[in-house]
């Protein structure tokens, strides 16, 4: 009698344990929303995109967690552009409501992420936070907790910021210390930073397509004159003037179709499509990346962010975000 009781008890404990283990292993996969601002760099010889994204706890575990607290986290991941592997994927904020974040620059060992709470400097090797907010050397308590108080100055390859005292400081990419910015950089940025032109980094980039654009070599491309294929649009990277989404030897075009548009990689001379790809969601962001790549942000029908890499060899899509198992 007692033995039978023990057996039942053991079975119940084992079942409960297996359930908890399954929940933990199932992780908290859920919708991810990549930020429009991403950076491309090299880590250990691999080309990676450093992407900040908003993650809602999903899955069975996520639903249980949501019952207790609104769990929206902001994470940063380094995604291998060849394989889609996440070299690392780390949480940088659990504030609710979630803060906005965007990767300004990455290179020489560090990635620089601007957030509503201040600048976060991340180690490219493991995603660990090196310094953030008021903990950045040379900036300290003079920091501004504002998304637009930080930006990337391409001319000096540095992240520039405004202090609460009105000074413009620069963190050269590859370092973690803020120092007074050069005179030119100060002129460029002092009345631009923190002026409240807030972008919705989890929304869509306006004007990601256009009928005409300038290629990198300065030549102009105009699809309006090209009578046979007027349903095509050039993917526009939103760079300073018009930046056409292209690698060497190809262009990326969008054909508007219902309900989802189709992207094609075409020959710039003949406009003959070599590869096509049906966008599963909206065309949120387009950027040109080193290595003759075009990076496209969209989402799948489960509202999970997708990073689509277009090369002369075709389209490859990678899911953004690998929050992994739930550790208690």
């Amino acid at each position: 009698m007692r033995r039978r009781l023990l057996v039942i008890l053991a079975l119940v404990v084992a079942a409960a344990g297996a359930g908890v283990a399954a929940l933990a292993a199932g992780g908290v996969d859920g919708p991810t929303r990549p930020s429009l601002d991403l950076a491309v760099t090299t880590v250990d010889g691999r080309d990676v995109a450093v992407v900040a994204y908003e993650h809602e706890a999903g899955g069975a575990m996520g639903r249980i967690l949501w019952a207790f607290s609104r769990e929206v986290t902001i994470r940063v991941a380094a995604i291998d552009l060849g394989t889609g592997e996440h070299l690392w994927d780390r949480e940088i904020s659990t504030a609710y409501p979630g803060i906005e974040a965007g990767v300004l620059a990455a290179g020489d060992g560090y990635a620089y992420v601007t957030t509503d709470d201040g600048l976060v400097i991340v180690d490219l090797d493991d995603g660990g936070v090196v310094a953030r907010d008021d903990g950045i050397d040379g900036l300290g308590a003079a920091y501004l907790a504002s998304l637009t108080a930080y930006d990337y100055d391409a001319a000096t390859n540095a992240v520039v910021t405004l202090t609460s005292g009105g000074e413009v400081l620069a963190v050269p990419v590859g370092t973690t210390t803020a120092e007074p910015a050069g005179a030119d950089a100060v002129t460029r940025w002092r009345d631009v930073l923190n002026t409240g032109t807030v972008r919705d980094l989890y929304g869509n980039q306006p004007g990601t397509t256009s009928k005409s654009a300038l290629a990198a070599d300065g030549s102009s491309i105009d699809l309006n004159t090209w009578a046979t294929r007027t349903d095509f649009y050039l993917l526009d990277t939103g760079a300073d003037r018009y930046g056409v989404a292209a690698g060497s030897g190809f262009l990326v075009l969008e054909a508007l179709e219902h309900p989802h548009s189709r992207l094609s990689i075409v020959d710039p001379e003949t406009y003959e499509p070599a590869h096509t790809y049906r966008l599963p969601g909206t065309l949120r962001q387009v950027v040109n990346a080193p290595g003759d790549r075009v990076l496209i942000l969209t989402e799948n029908d489960e509202y999970t962010g997708l990073l689509v890499v277009a090369t002369a060899g075709g389209f490859t899509e990678f899911v953004v975000g690998a929050p992994g198992m739930r550790w208690f």
Partner: peptide, 9 residues
């Protein structure tokens, strides 16, 4: 004088 446009000081 000299306050950047982005500061409400």
């Amino acid at each position: 004088d000299g306050t950047p446009a982005g500061l409400a000081t």
